[in-house]
Design a protein around this nucleic acid. Structure first.
Lengths: 129, 129
DNA sequence: CTTGACCTTCCCCTGTACTGGAAGGTCCAT
DNA sequence: ATGGACCTTCCAGTACAGGGGAAGGTCAAG
């Protein structure tokens, strides 16, 4: 399978496939006599795994770790569980941060609706913030 | 006031002050005979405004817009209200996205806790994802 | 034999908000 | 006059996940 075909069936681009290879996520495929990349069908499953992992918000570095474990012949189950747990903690923190920021911004907006604009002063730029 | 002093009283760094000048957030200050930047005291209020705006999650580009309006002699009140409203919409979207992702990841983790690891298969890499 | 689609490597660019460091100039005290 | 603290400009890099485009090679069809 050539790179364009793999890109199409996996729903990505040739640029991304070369980038993944460079980043160590995809093994370097065989080459045809003309120098073209010639992918084995298994590459598609691997790309699906990468896509699913990305959907879960894992970074390419984390995905590479999982793949490295698998490629070393070990089942990465425990590592994946740890990653998911850590990711959940990150998400909770991010959500909490954004909610706190939301409160701040909502309060600024509410103040802006009630405060007299003439009390703005040029040196302070804007008293709404 | 020299750049180091302004950096200290405003709680930032000289690097950042030069960067803000370059980015059009701070007007280029007077220079001393020796070529040193010589800030007027008003610079501090402007930096406070920038800091408050950053706390509200505004980008430097948005802050610059507000400052440009103010520097054109117009009170930026309406623009700031619009910005805050838009920011609130962005935050709501971001929070909703992260919460959806949290659900996805939580479900993956829960599945990982119950599914038999021996059903993993090397080509799929990991059935938890 | 040529055209066009596809492929190759290579290097730079995107956006965000800075940060690090080199080479050199200024100022004040000793 | 010399040391050290401070300042100047300029260049390059950080993290993230690719994207853009140039210059050139390959392959099947007409």
């Amino acid at each position: 399978m050539r790179i364009g075909e793999l890109a199409q069936v996996s729903g990505t681009t040739t640029k991304t496939l070369r980038f993944y290879e460079e980043a160590g996520l995809l093994p370097a495929p065989e080459r045809t006599a003309g120098g073209y990349r010639d992918y084995a069908p298994e590459a598609l499953a691997r790309l699906d795994f990468i896509r699913r992992s990305r959907t879960a918000g894992l970074t390419l570095a984390q995905i590479r770790q999982v793949l490295d474990i698998r490629d070393a012949g070990v089942a990465p189950c425990q590592h994946v569980q740890d990653l998911l747990e850590a990711r959940l903690g990150d998400l909770d923190r991010q959500i909490a941060d954004l909610q706190a920021l939301r409160h701040t911004v909502a309060r600024l907006r509410d103040d802006a609706a009630t405060v007299d604009p003439t009390s703005c002063d040029a040196t302070t730029v804007c008293r709404y913030l």
